[in-house]
Simulated assay, not measured.
Amino acid sequence: MDKQQPPCPHCGYHPGPDRAPDPGRTPDPGNGRVEDWRSVLGQDFARTTARQRRRGLAVMLVCCVALVPWIAFLAETLPVHYESRQWRLAWVGFDIALLAALAATAWAGWRRRQLIVPFALASAVLLLCDAWFDVMLAWGTDDLRWSLASAVLVELPLAGLLLNRVRVIMRMTLKVYWHRAGLPGDPPPLHRARLFSATVDHHPS
Protein backbone atom coordinates (compact mmCIF):
# COMPACT_ATOMS: atom_id res chain seq x y z
CA MET A 1 0.00 0.00 0.00
CA ASP A 2 1.35 3.39 -0.97
CA LYS A 3 2.12 5.72 1.92
CA GLN A 4 -0.01 8.84 1.72
CA GLN A 5 1.36 12.22 2.66
CA PRO A 6 -0.36 14.10 5.49
CA PRO A 7 -2.35 17.19 4.54
CA CYS A 8 -0.41 20.41 4.40
CA PRO A 9 -1.02 22.45 7.59
CA HIS A 10 -0.78 25.70 5.59
CA CYS A 11 -2.81 25.06 2.44
CA GLY A 12 -4.86 21.98 3.43
CA TYR A 13 -3.93 20.14 0.24
CA HIS A 14 -3.78 16.34 0.43
CA PRO A 15 -2.29 14.60 -2.65
CA GLY A 16 -4.06 11.40 -3.62
CA PRO A 17 -2.15 8.11 -3.91
CA ASP A 18 -2.83 7.88 -7.67
CA ARG A 19 -1.56 11.35 -8.50
CA ALA A 20 1.95 11.49 -9.86
CA PRO A 21 3.81 14.60 -8.70
CA ASP A 22 4.98 17.04 -11.33
CA PRO A 23 7.17 19.96 -10.26
CA GLY A 24 5.77 22.02 -13.11
CA ARG A 25 2.17 21.46 -12.07
CA THR A 26 0.68 22.72 -8.80
CA PRO A 27 -2.48 21.16 -7.31
CA ASP A 28 -5.29 23.51 -6.39
CA PRO A 29 -6.17 22.81 -2.74
CA GLY A 30 -9.74 23.91 -3.33
CA ASN A 31 -10.85 21.25 -5.78
CA GLY A 32 -7.85 19.01 -6.42
CA ARG A 33 -7.37 20.46 -9.90
CA VAL A 34 -3.80 20.45 -11.19
CA GLU A 35 -2.63 23.87 -12.32
CA ASP A 36 0.00 24.03 -15.04
CA TRP A 37 2.39 26.89 -14.26
CA ARG A 38 3.14 27.38 -17.93
CA SER A 39 -0.52 28.11 -18.72
CA VAL A 40 -0.64 30.64 -15.88
CA LEU A 41 2.67 32.38 -16.56
CA GLY A 42 2.50 32.24 -20.33
CA GLN A 43 4.02 30.10 -23.04
CA ASP A 44 7.12 32.27 -23.31
CA PHE A 45 7.87 32.16 -19.59
CA ALA A 46 10.45 29.35 -19.78
CA ARG A 47 12.30 30.92 -22.70
CA THR A 48 12.24 34.37 -21.11
CA THR A 49 13.49 33.18 -17.72
CA ALA A 50 16.22 31.10 -19.33
CA ARG A 51 17.40 34.09 -21.36
CA GLN A 52 17.32 36.38 -18.33
CA ARG A 53 19.20 33.78 -16.30
CA ARG A 54 21.99 33.59 -18.87
CA ARG A 55 22.27 37.37 -19.02
CA GLY A 56 22.28 37.70 -15.25
CA LEU A 57 24.96 35.05 -14.84
CA ALA A 58 27.08 36.77 -17.49
CA VAL A 59 26.78 40.12 -15.71
CA MET A 60 27.70 38.58 -12.34
CA LEU A 61 30.69 36.80 -13.87
CA VAL A 62 31.96 40.02 -15.46
CA CYS A 63 31.54 41.87 -12.15
CA CYS A 64 33.48 39.21 -10.23
CA VAL A 65 36.30 39.18 -12.76
CA ALA A 66 36.49 43.00 -12.84
CA LEU A 67 36.51 43.29 -9.05
CA VAL A 68 39.70 41.24 -8.64
CA PRO A 69 42.07 43.75 -10.29
CA TRP A 70 40.08 46.66 -8.86
CA ILE A 71 40.59 45.38 -5.31
CA ALA A 72 44.29 44.91 -5.98
CA PHE A 73 44.49 48.45 -7.39
CA LEU A 74 42.77 49.95 -4.33
CA ALA A 75 44.96 47.98 -1.96
CA GLU A 76 48.07 49.48 -3.59
CA THR A 77 46.92 53.05 -4.22
CA LEU A 78 44.46 54.13 -1.51
CA PRO A 79 45.97 56.31 1.21
CA VAL A 80 45.87 55.22 4.85
CA HIS A 81 44.59 58.64 5.88
CA TYR A 82 41.95 60.61 3.99
CA GLU A 83 40.04 63.76 4.94
CA SER A 84 36.41 63.80 3.85
CA ARG A 85 34.45 66.99 3.19
CA GLN A 86 31.04 65.28 3.49
CA TRP A 87 31.63 63.08 6.54
CA ARG A 88 28.43 64.18 8.27
CA LEU A 89 26.26 63.80 5.17
CA ALA A 90 27.70 60.35 4.43
CA TRP A 91 26.85 58.94 7.86
CA VAL A 92 23.50 60.70 8.20
CA GLY A 93 22.46 59.47 4.76
CA PHE A 94 23.60 55.94 5.61
CA ASP A 95 21.63 55.92 8.85
CA ILE A 96 18.53 57.23 7.05
CA ALA A 97 18.82 54.32 4.62
CA LEU A 98 19.21 51.91 7.56
CA LEU A 99 16.17 53.42 9.27
CA ALA A 100 14.11 53.06 6.10
CA ALA A 101 15.15 49.41 5.68
CA LEU A 102 14.36 48.54 9.31
CA ALA A 103 11.02 50.36 9.14
CA ALA A 104 10.11 48.53 5.92
CA THR A 105 11.06 45.22 7.56
CA ALA A 106 8.89 45.99 10.58
CA TRP A 107 5.96 46.99 8.33
CA ALA A 108 6.25 43.81 6.23
CA GLY A 109 6.42 41.70 9.38
CA TRP A 110 3.42 43.47 10.88
CA ARG A 111 1.41 43.03 7.67
CA ARG A 112 2.76 39.48 7.16
CA ARG A 113 4.02 40.19 3.67
CA GLN A 114 6.59 38.17 1.71
CA LEU A 115 8.39 41.47 1.12
CA ILE A 116 9.90 40.99 4.56
CA VAL A 117 12.54 38.78 2.91
CA PRO A 118 14.23 41.45 0.73
CA PHE A 119 13.66 44.15 3.36
CA ALA A 120 15.22 42.02 6.11
CA LEU A 121 18.14 41.09 3.85
CA ALA A 122 18.78 44.74 3.02
CA SER A 123 18.62 45.66 6.71
CA ALA A 124 21.06 42.90 7.65
CA VAL A 125 23.54 43.95 4.95
CA LEU A 126 23.35 47.59 6.06
CA LEU A 127 23.89 46.57 9.69
CA LEU A 128 26.96 44.52 8.73
CA CYS A 129 28.31 47.45 6.72
CA ASP A 130 27.62 49.77 9.64
CA ALA A 131 29.57 47.54 12.01
CA TRP A 132 32.47 47.19 9.56
CA PHE A 133 32.90 50.89 8.84
CA ASP A 134 32.33 51.89 12.46
CA VAL A 135 35.16 49.64 13.62
CA MET A 136 37.53 50.26 10.72
CA LEU A 137 37.16 54.04 10.72
CA ALA A 138 37.58 54.21 14.51
CA TRP A 139 40.67 52.00 14.49
CA GLY A 140 43.50 53.59 16.42
CA THR A 141 41.28 56.21 18.04
CA ASP A 142 39.59 56.55 21.43
CA ASP A 143 36.24 55.75 19.81
CA LEU A 144 37.27 52.19 18.93
CA ARG A 145 35.90 50.64 22.14
CA TRP A 146 32.50 52.24 21.56
CA SER A 147 32.45 51.07 17.95
CA LEU A 148 33.37 47.53 19.00
CA ALA A 149 30.71 47.53 21.70
CA SER A 150 28.08 48.76 19.25
CA ALA A 151 29.06 46.15 16.69
CA VAL A 152 29.19 43.21 19.10
CA LEU A 153 26.13 44.09 21.19
CA VAL A 154 23.77 45.67 18.65
CA GLU A 155 24.58 45.55 14.95
CA LEU A 156 25.95 42.03 14.52
CA PRO A 157 23.30 40.30 16.72
CA LEU A 158 20.48 42.17 14.98
CA ALA A 159 21.88 41.30 11.55
CA GLY A 160 22.15 37.65 12.58
CA LEU A 161 18.56 37.69 13.86
CA LEU A 162 17.28 39.11 10.57
CA LEU A 163 19.27 36.64 8.46
CA ASN A 164 18.00 33.73 10.52
CA ARG A 165 14.44 34.99 10.13
CA VAL A 166 14.90 35.11 6.37
CA ARG A 167 16.22 31.53 6.44
CA VAL A 168 13.18 30.36 8.42
CA ILE A 169 10.72 32.08 6.05
CA MET A 170 12.44 30.70 2.95
CA ARG A 171 12.49 27.22 4.46
CA MET A 172 8.79 27.43 5.32
CA THR A 173 7.94 28.66 1.83
CA LEU A 174 9.88 25.78 0.30
CA LYS A 175 8.06 23.25 2.49
CA VAL A 176 4.65 24.63 1.50
CA TYR A 177 5.57 24.57 -2.20
CA TRP A 178 6.99 21.06 -1.87
CA HIS A 179 3.82 19.76 -0.27
CA ARG A 180 1.47 21.55 -2.67
CA ALA A 181 3.38 20.11 -5.63
CA GLY A 182 2.92 16.60 -4.20
CA LEU A 183 6.64 15.91 -4.19
CA PRO A 184 7.75 12.90 -2.12
CA GLY A 185 9.80 13.14 1.06
CA ASP A 186 11.14 16.31 2.61
CA PRO A 187 12.47 19.29 0.64
CA PRO A 188 16.25 19.63 0.26
CA PRO A 189 18.32 22.13 2.24
CA LEU A 190 18.14 25.71 1.02
CA HIS A 191 21.60 25.61 -0.54
CA ARG A 192 20.44 22.74 -2.78
CA ALA A 193 16.90 23.92 -3.50
CA ARG A 194 16.21 25.05 -7.05
CA LEU A 195 14.42 28.23 -8.00
CA PHE A 196 10.70 27.68 -8.51
CA SER A 197 11.02 28.90 -12.09
CA ALA A 198 13.73 26.29 -12.74
CA THR A 199 11.11 23.53 -12.64
CA VAL A 200 9.27 25.27 -15.48
CA ASP A 201 12.48 25.78 -17.48
CA HIS A 202 12.79 22.01 -17.82
CA HIS A 203 9.28 21.63 -19.25
CA PRO A 204 9.43 23.10 -22.77
CA SER A 205 6.15 24.27 -24.23
Rank of each mutant, 00 (worst) to 15 (best):
W132A: 14
W132G: 07
W132T: 11
F133N: 09
F133R: 07
D134M: 04
D134W: 11
D134Q: 05
D134P: 02
D134K: 09
V135P: 02
V135G: 04
V135L: 05
V135R: 05
V135I: 12
V135C: 10
V135M: 10
M136C: 07
M136N: 07
M136L: 12
M136W: 14
M136F: 11
L137D: 10
L137M: 11
L137I: 01
L137K: 02
L137Q: 06
L137E: 14
A138R: 00
A138E: 01
A138Q: 00
W139C: 03
W139P: 01
W139S: 08
G140A: 01
G140F: 02
T141D: 02
T141L: 01
T141C: 02
T141E: 01
T141Y: 02
D142C: 02
D143F: 06
L144E: 03
L144C: 03
L144Q: 08
L144H: 06
L144T: 01
L144P: 01
R145W: 12
R145Q: 14
R145D: 15
W146A: 04
S147M: 09
S147F: 03
L148V: 09
L148I: 05
L148N: 04
L148C: 02
A149P: 06
A149I: 09
A149Q: 13
S150A: 14
S150E: 12
S150T: 13
A151L: 03
A151P: 07
A151C: 04
A151V: 05
V152W: 08
V152D: 05
V152F: 08
V152Y: 06
L153I: 10
V154L: 15
V154H: 11
V154N: 08
E155K: 15
E155S: 11
E155Y: 13
E155T: 10
L156E: 02
L156C: 09
P157R: 05
P157L: 02
P157M: 04
L158G: 05
L158H: 10
L158Q: 13
L158I: 12
L158P: 06
A159G: 00
A159N: 02
A159L: 00
A159H: 00
L161M: 10
L161C: 13
L162R: 00
L162H: 03
L162F: 06
L163H: 07
L163E: 04
N164L: 14
N164G: 12
R165W: 13
R165Y: 14
R165T: 08
V166T: 11
V166M: 07
V166Q: 11
V166R: 07
R167M: 08
R167C: 10
R167S: 07
R167E: 11
V168G: 09
I169R: 15
M170P: 07
M170N: 14
M170A: 12
M170R: 15
M170F: 09
